[in-house]
Design a protein around this nucleic acid. Structure first.
Lengths: 201, 201
DNA sequence: TTAGTTTTTGAATGCTTATTCAAGATATGA
DNA sequence: TCATATCTTGAATAAGCATTCAAAAACTAA
């Protein structure tokens, strides 16, 4: 009888979150295709066998890392907005934060969701499903922000919060892509300020 | 003496533009890293030796394809705008065209410049230089469009044409990224309309 | 036609890759 | 302390990759 039901099994020695965050940064720096198992071994400290045991394969590790990334970013977003009683001030701070990430040119500060979207949304339908849901979560979070801004009377025009959330997501995607060629701080800041204006109008 | 100066040399049998367009679509569908030389052989009809003779290596073929893509897109843009006496109507048609490409979900209709920007701008500085210049050309073309719109008295606010051109590029990058998860025609059209409004305000 | 030169061809090369697996190490429960 | 089950290890595997090269084909010039 190889199976035991009630006994405590020996648990893995590595810290799952730590491993996933290491994998995240590896994928961010090189992209999925160019990150080899050797790279992942070096980044995570796990031997190939352990990776395959824990995550099935390289793709499984990416999907798990994507989900960890989404959780981390969700927490981060909530923490940032909870610092502001004015929702509009929170949004301004959020955009400034994104612009700062773009300007830093630090590969570890780009958006893994966006990177994965560009690299494998068209090829891998399972990844696309995960990414679609993550985008929906992001959209909903931003939608709630715009509802709060509206409640606080800081919105000019008649657009719905959902419309605004979508436009903001489009703008942030664009900002991050644009930064690949033009990370000049002044230009990036101006673009961020204009986005805030347009989306609150 | 192996070198001949004045004699006509035998010319290659393949059509360079045709080969580059075939390579373009191959790279668009799979991205640079995942497109193998086998794929490129199948797409272009050229044997490996010929590709290496004409373009040095796989990366050289990509760079040449990027330049062909940029030429083609520049011509296309000029052709589109020349159909309209109202520059603002031309811009509206341009945005509609981009939205249609997004909605089609056809891998051959995405933007190779943007795809390359995402995949290898951070790793390959020579590619980054080429892409930066292509983006500058695009920006200048759009800047000229906004100057014409201003001359025709169709611009509301006080922003410079250059600012507007940059914002439009950001928005189009974002639109194309967004479409990877949400290519619903109505949403995409609304986003396109909003971008036009914001950028002409 | 013929000689000379170039392109085309596609098999061979050597390297890298993701993945597997059996042996060794280690924790658990009695 | 021992027996057992689990995790860890890293070398082995097989497939795929970009690239090369020498032979064959084909164009040019005479």
């Amino acid at each position: 009888m190889p199976e035991q039901e009630n006994n405590e099994m020996r648990s893995a020695e590595f810290d799952r979150e730590q491993v996933l965050r290491a994998a995240m940064t590896a994928f961010m720096e090189k992209g999925y295709a160019k990150t080899s198992m050797q790279d992942l071994k070096a980044a995570t400290g796990l031997h190939p066998g352990s990776i395959y045991c824990a995550f099935q394969n390289k793709r499984g590790l990416l999907l798990a890392a994507l989900e960890q990334y989404n959780r981390d970013r969700g927490d981060e977003l909530q923490a940032l907005f909870s610092q502001f009683s004015s929702a509009r001030a929170g949004l301004a701070a959020y955009l400034t934060h994104v612009v700062d990430e773009c300007v830093s040119c630090d590969p570890q500060k780009l958006c893994l969701t966006q990177k994965a979207l560009n690299e494998l949304a068209e090829q891998d339908t399972e990844a696309q499903a995960i990414l679609s849901e993550q985008c929906a979560m992001w959209r909903n979070a931003l939608c709630a922000v715009f509802e709060r801004i509206a409640d606080q009377g800081e919105l000019t025009g008649a657009r719905t919060p959902l419309d605004r959330a979508r436009s903001l997501i489009v703008s942030i995607y664009g900002l991050r892509t644009f930064a690949h060629t033009h990370p000049e701080p002044q230009i990036m800041r101006d673009l961020g300020a204009q986005i805030l204006k347009d989306v609150c109008q």
